[in-house]
Design a protein around this nucleic acid. Structure first.
Lengths: 185, 185
DNA sequence: GTCTATATGCTGATAGAC
DNA sequence: GTCTATCAGCATATAGAC
C-alpha cells in the first residue's frame, strides 16, 4: 500500500477504513468503491472478488508487521528483546490502525477463506514473542506468548481509542520488561 | 438463557453458535431460525429485528460474566483477588465460548447498534480488573487493567481452540499472580 | 405463539462501451 | 484501466392463517 494513487491501493485503503468500523461482512463493495473514488467495475478489475480484497489486505499487513517485529527482536540489546518487540507491535498498530482492527476482528473466526493464512501468521507472531521471551530469559511457553500478545493488542487499542495522548513509551513500560512482567518465574 | 426450551432462548443459542463461527453480519436470520428449529416468523415474534437478537445476546452475556467476576473478587482471600478474577473469566469463557467469541469479535467495532452497551460493559470489566489489581497491591492504572484483560482473553481462547487439555489452573498460573506478574512495580 | 407465503431492497458480480 | 448499466439471488422484514 505504498502508493495510494494507484487504484488497487485506493481500494485497499478504503476497504480497511470501512471494515475497521463495521467488520468485513458488513462492508459492501459499493461502499468500498465509493470511498475509494472509483467505480465498482474498477474494483473488480483489480480484485476477482470481495473476499480477495480482504485476503490481500490481511496477508500484506501481517507480513509487514511480522517483519518489523522480527527485525526489532534481532536488533535488540541483550535482555531488551521483549521491550523491542512490544514497541514494534505498538508502532505497527499506530501506523495502520484500520488494518490492525480488521485483523483482530478476524483473529478468532473459523469459517473464512483466509483462515489458513491468518492461522499461519498468528503462529509466526506467537513464535516471535516466544523467542523474545526466551532471549530475555523469561518463561516462554505457548501460554506465556499468548498472554503477551493479548496484552499488547488490548493496550494498543485502548491507547488508540481512549488515550491517544499516552505515549508508546508508557505503554511499553506497562506491558514490557519494566512492568508486571519483571520477575522471571 | 436458562431454559433453552423456550423459543426465545433457542434462538439466542442458535445465534451465538452461528455468529461465533461466521461473525454477526454474516449470520442470517434464516440460518438462525433453521438451527433453532423454529420458523422465521417465530424469530420475529420474539425479537423485533436481527440487531435486537445480538443486542440481547451480548447484553445478557456480559452482565452474567461481570457478575461472576465481581463475586469472585469480593469473595477472594486477601492478596488473591487477581487469581480469583482470572479464574472467573476463564471459567466464564469455558461455560459459554460461543457468546464469548461473538462479544470479542464485536469488542473493537465502532459503528454498531450495541456500541454504547458494549462500551459500558467494557468499562465495568476494566474497573473490576483494576479493583482486583489494587486489592492485591499491584499497579492498577487503566493500562495495567487493559493488559490483564487482553492476556486473559487471548489465553482463554488459545486454550479453547488449540490446547483444550490445558487446565484452567495452568492458565491462571500463567496470567495470574504466580506468573509474569509477580513483581509489584 | 408458531407457522407459510410474500414483498422489497440490496449485494456481489458481469457485460461491454470508451 | 476505468466507466455505466444491469442481472440474478438473497436478506431482512411483514401479513395473515391457524
Amino acid at each position: 500500500m505504498a502508493r495510494p494513487n494507484r487504484s488497487r491501493d485506493k481500494v485497499l485503503v478504503a476497504a480497511a477504513e470501512l471494515a475497521a468500523e463495521r467488520g468485513v461482512s458488513a462492508t459492501t463493495v459499493d461502499e468500498i468503491a465509493a470511498r475509494a473514488g472509483v467505480a465498482k467495475g474498477s474494483v473488480y478489475y483489480s480484485f476477482p472478488s470481495k473476499e480477495a480484497i480482504f485476503e490481500s489486505l490481511i496477508d500484506e499487513a501481517i507480513a509487514r508487521v511480522s517483519g518489523r517485529i522480527r527485525d526489532a527482536r534481532e536488533d535488540a540489546e541483550p535482555g531488551a528483546a521483549l521491550d523491542a518487540v512490544a514497541r514494534a507491535m505498538l508502532e505497527g498498530l499506530e501506523a495502520d490502525p484500520h488494518v490492525a482492527k480488521v485483523v483482530v476482528g478476524e483473529l478468532f473466526r473459523t469459517d473464512r477463506p483466509w483462515r489458513a493464512t491468518l492461522a499461519g501468521h498468528r503462529a509466526v507472531l506467537l513464535d516471535e514473542l516466544g523467542a523474545a521471551l526466551a532471549a530475555d530469559g523469561r518463561p516462554a511457553s505457548g501460554v506465556d506468548a499468548a498472554a503477551r500478545l493479548g496484552a499488547f493488542i488490548m493496550v494498543g487499542f485502548e491507547r488508540l481509542a481512549f488515550s491517544p495522548d499516552r505515549t508508546i513509551d508508557e505503554c511499553v513500560a506497562a506491558v514490557g520488561s519494566g512492568a508486571p512482567g519483571t520477575a522471571a518465574r
